[in-house]
């Protein structure tokens, strides 16, 4: 695999920012009740991530080390304001629901993390691809979570009725828990479990081993 391809595709399954690095999950919890706003949020985050990586990488040789974080934040914040303004001008309806989370992309750990960890060391093109890859990795998880939450919480996908809710005269009793943010924790947890059952190398070494009783340790020694 060429370097560019690797940088682009690795963050999707092998090094997923949400599932492996557990970064940026606040917005994953907040915006995933419906698919459409989630899609816009993913688009917003991916574009900010790509461009911030690109610009940080372009000026990386001129950033004074002691103010580098401030420089990165300034760049990211400006991009976020841009994206927010554009969203308000073209989709006012959705910006009402996700506006505050778009503004909070500034504090999204993925954006800052990639700028600091990747773009500061690598060239503009690779950094851009890295941003795109991480954005796609983030989007993948968010879209799966949103699809499950919207389908089982409100019985719709992209607003189209799939399971007709009892309150709309149908048969499906909406799962109100799916509508609440905390359900994404469980869904993301399940996704991480699935991903790690598939890609076994992602399972982390336990930080410590629980000691067993003396008697059992001896037996266990022979058994294992």
């Amino acid at each position: 695999m060429s370097k560019g391809r690797e940088v682009l595709l690795n963050p999707i399954f092998n090094d997923n920012p949400i599932a492996l690095q557990i970064l940026g999950i606040c917005s994953a919890l907040a915006v995933t009740t419906n698919l459409y706003p989630t899609l816009l949020m993913c688009l917003a985050l991916t574009s900010v991530l790509c461009l911030s990586n690109l610009f940080v990488s372009i000026i990386r040789n001129h950033i004074p080390t002691n103010v580098r974080m401030i420089v990165q934040i300034t760049l990211i914040a400006s991009l976020v304001v841009l994206v927010d303004e554009i969203l308000k001008a073209y989709d006012y309806e959705t910006s009402k629901t996700i506006g505050v989370f778009v503004a909070l992309i500034v504090t999204n750990c993925i954006v800052m993390g990639r700028a600091e960890a990747y773009a500061m060391q690598n060239g503009p093109w690779l950094s851009f691809l890295d941003g795109l890859g991480n954005g796609l990795g983030y989007s993948l998880i968010l879209i799966i979570v949103a699809a499950i939450r919207e389908l089982f919480g409100s019985g719709t996908l992209f607003g189209y009725e799939i399971l007709i809710l009892t309150q709309n005269g149908g048969w499906y009793l909406g799962n109100n828990y799916m509508v609440l943010s905390s359900s994404s924790f469980i869904l993301i947890g399940l996704l991480i479990w699935l991903l790690r059952s598939w890609k076994v190398e992602q399972i982390e070494e336990p930080e410590f081993q629980t000691a067993r009783n003396n008697l059992e340790t001896k037996e266990a020694g022979t058994r294992v």
């Binding site: 040789n61 103010v67 420089v71």
Partner: peptide
């Protein structure tokens, strides 16, 4: 890059461009 002049220059020009 860590001289005072450079730091100020990068900071001010970045803010200017972004704003």
């Amino acid at each position: 890059n860590d001289t005072l002049v450079k730091t100020l220059f990068v900071g001010i020009s970045l803010c200017l461009v972004c704003s």
